[in-house]
Amino acid sequence: MQLIECPWCGPREEVEFHYGGQAHVPYPDNPAELTDEEWAHYVFFRDNTKGRFAERWNHTVGCRRWFNAVRDTTTYRFERVSRLDDPKPVTS
């Protein structure tokens, strides 16, 4: 089983984690002014990158904290993990 490095707990088995999809999707600054189309993009549309992808994970059965990772979606290999307060990594 693949080991995932939790920034707080260290390497743990993949089954301990919950996937959270694309990372760094900010809540809209001006939600009241958004058009339907802009809301649709915030709610439903996410990048579906083939290759290096910045995404969120939760260590569900460990510390229960969220963190970010860069993972290659073709090899599934984790390149790095980072805490939520770390800056957004450059993926492409």
Binding site: G21, F53, T73, T74, Y76
Partner: peptide, 9 residues
């Protein structure tokens, strides 16, 4: 997780 590898865990 998202994946294009044609294999899973």
């Amino acid at each position: 997780y998202n994946g294009y590898g044609q294999r899973g865990a």
